[in-house]
């Protein structure tokens, strides 16, 4: 069995996976605490206040202020959670895109039912695409007459990334909505046709991870998968060279 997966969360393999897991644990801890308090109180009441022969229930329409304490605690906790945990982390994930120069920039194009990775190659420029050129050998419709496209690398269902360098990815879809999901990176982003959605993450672990599609995209949704292969920078360089058309 694969070492990356178990009965709990998969391994953490990106720079922000730890933060997201932290909030998962925090929230589940609080949920468990609330549930246990409720459950104990309820069990106590069910035993203590069950109907006995001559007992009468307490008649009262009072709503003491103290009964609002749970609501108030909940509200305070949630406001703290949103402003001091939620918004900073979310802004980090969504808005802190790494600079182009220090990152691996690439496009990922989703279609029924495959992921196509499009690296700009050595020149750092993405070649022109023309939908009418799309065929089985050229899934992106790259225009060979465009000099920028000559060294572009196209890889289907295999995402190679170097360790220690953030990846900056532009997601787009050819047909329907897909969702780019790598459990080990804790990243999930819908890929919407008609939109180019930027995402980023920084791999922190060498190995092979899984890309899944998390949004129903048709009959092949279940088998729309790919692999992320995180390599040392040297190996990644070698892979890039081996893929570049000379």
């Amino acid at each position: 069995m694969n070492q990356n997966y178990g009965w709990g969360l998969p391994v953490q393999a990106s720079s922000y996976a730890g933060k997201l897991d932290g909030s998962l644990f925090l929230l589940h801890g609080v949920m468990l605490l609330i549930f246990v308090l409720w459950a104990f109180y309820m069990i106590f009441c069910l035993i203590r206040y069950r109907q006995k022969n001559s007992s009468r229930a307490l008649y009262s329409h009072r709503t003491p202020l103290s009964s609002y304490i749970p609501d108030a605690l909940m509200l305070i906790f949630e406001i703290w959670l949103i402003f001091f945990v939620g918004i900073p982390i979310w802004a980090h994930i969504r808005e802190d895109l790494p600079k182009e120069e220090t990152s691996v920039a690439l496009h990922i194009v989703a279609e029924q039912f495959a992921w196509t990775m499009h690296y700009p190659g050595l020149d750092g420029k993405f070649g022109k695409q023309n939908p009418s050129l799309i065929n089985a050998d050229n899934p992106l419709g790259l225009d060979e007459n465009d000099p920028d496209s000559l060294d572009d690398i196209v890889s289907v269902n295999e995402l190679h990334l170097p360790l220690g360098k953030p990846a900056r990815i532009l997601l787009s879809s050819k047909d329907v909505i897909h969702s780019f999901f790598v459990p080990e990176f804790r990243i999930k982003q819908d890929v919407v046709p008609g939109m180019n959605i930027p995402i980023w993450f920084e791999p922190t672990k060498i190995g092979q991870f899984e890309i899944g599609c998390a949004q129903l995209c048709g009959t092949g949704h279940y088998r729309m998968r790919g692999d992320v292969i995180v390599q040392s920078p040297e190996e990644f360089e070698n892979w890039t060279k081996s893929k570049t058309k000379s």
């Binding site: 969702s179 804790r186 998390a214």
Partner: peptide, 12 residues
Amino acid sequence: GFTPTDVYLHDT
């Protein structure tokens, strides 16, 4: 409902 955790749990 909390974005940092929803990003992992969404659609699971």
